[in-house]
Amino acid sequence: MTHAAQVRKYVQDHLTELLEDLRRLVHTETPSNRKDLLQIGLAEIEDYVTTRLGEPSARRQHEGGPRGDVLDLTWPGSPGVEGSVLSVCHYDTVWPEGTVEDWPLTQQGDELSGPGVLDMKAGIVQTVWMLLALRQLKIPHPALRLMLTGDEEIGSLASRRHIEAAARESQVTLIAEPSAGGDVKVQRKGTVTADIVVHGIESHAGLDPEKGASAIHEMARLIPSVLALADPDLATTVNVGLLAGGSGRNVVAGLASCQIDIRIQEPQEEDRVVGVLEALAPHDDRCRLEIMIDRNRPPMNPTEQTERLLGLVKRAGRDLGEVVGTQAVGGASDGNYIAALGLPVIDGLGGIGDGPHARHEHIQVSGLPRQVALMAGLVELLADGH
């Protein structure tokens, strides 16, 4: 038996404090594209976690360039317990500055709504209270390494190498991204993105149409080839999410662009779709293409490591009288990188709620003690050598 039930009661007894912590973090706005606010926000979050947990035994901060910095903090484990557990939490959100002014953290019944509360300020707070509960209840635990990243919502380009390096040095990585209704996420799709720009030749649509080469017409010919990359049998999906071009109704368009999102479940699909995108060519040789491709995240698929960790999470759930299920989702996370390395990772340990990236984003307050207890139960089992 784990002490998960004791942890749940501890968190329930201190729920008011936890909710105040969450309010502090949600009201600290950290949009992914605002380096200045990310710097202020990271300093505020570091002050919060060190106030709750004390000064870490190790601290490293990695410059993120135009993106948010990565803050890597470690607190020691119980005497005699070896190894460390990594918790990866992103502090950036999709919400622009000023959102919290007309949408502050608000509770109605069991729902607590606010920008970034689910994705994923709750995950940061849960991680802090997990370690706090383990300490206060004197439950043996490994060292905790908390990695706070500031660019997950825009591809983790600055943080990826630091996440992968930390995962290689840790027993297990916990991803406190939103749960799937209380279930953990064992499978996520990978992401390939592409930006296509067509350069044409402008001319008057009425007087000199033959002198022009329409970038929009060329893009219209290309898009069916892009959409044909979808393969329902392999769960590969394609979305042209943004399309722009032209300068006027009576002007043969000199420029057009589109942004493409491709989701893959099978690893080999990445090479296939990238190969097709790279081979795209204009139908009208007077037009020129620019194609920018990002193999953003590999897919996350279950492994033997996943099954072992899932068994531990389910065991902690049983100690709470809960059944913890599993789900596959289309969205990606930093857990994709770790799984692709063949390293142990468990995802979806964060808040129970709905509406990430939407105006109805919220968590269930009653789910917070359960989620913290699940995390604590898993970490306790890892300390026992499971």
Rank of each mutant, 00 (worst) to 15 (best):
V372D: 09
M120W: 02
D69H: 10
I201F: 04
M375S: 03
H357V: 06
H141Q: 11
G123M: 13
P76A: 11
V274S: 01
S333Q: 04
E304H: 13
A215T: 06
N296M: 15
Q265T: 15
T93V: 10
P76V: 01
R67W: 11
V276Y: 00
R318P: 03
L144Y: 05
E111P: 01
L207N: 12
R272W: 12
K211S: 12
D334H: 11
D231A: 11
L18C: 03
Q108D: 10
L86S: 07
L309G: 05
G190A: 01
K138I: 00
L38H: 03
R135N: 14
S57G: 14
D208Y: 13
V197Y: 07
N296D: 15
Q268S: 15
G335H: 02
H14Q: 14
K314Y: 02
M120T: 10
E111G: 06
G348W: 03
Q259P: 00
H217I: 10
G114Y: 09
M375N: 11
T99P: 12
L105E: 07
I163H: 01
G321R: 07
D195E: 12
A358V: 00
L144E: 09
G77D: 04
A58E: 15
R359T: 09
V49N: 06
P140H: 04
G330D: 06
G206F: 07
H360V: 10
V345E: 03
E97L: 13
E322T: 05
E44Y: 04
P56C: 13
G83A: 02
Q364V: 06
G330Q: 01
M130W: 04
L19I: 14
D319K: 03
D285I: 06
L381A: 08
L144F: 07
L22H: 12
S156Y: 08
R168Y: 10
E17N: 08
T74I: 11
A244Q: 15
A220Q: 08
R168A: 15
G155T: 02
L320I: 11
G41I: 08
L25G: 03
R34D: 15
R24S: 14
E307H: 13
S247H: 14
L137Y: 13
R8T: 01
V125A: 13
R308Y: 06
G246S: 08
R67G: 00
R286I: 10
V94C: 09
I163N: 01
V276Q: 06
H162D: 13
S57T: 14
G321D: 05
G248W: 05
L378D: 01
Q268P: 05
I346A: 08
E153T: 04
L227M: 14
A165Y: 04
V117K: 02
L112T: 05
E55M: 12
Y337T: 00
L118E: 05
G241V: 11
G254D: 05
S78P: 06
L374G: 06
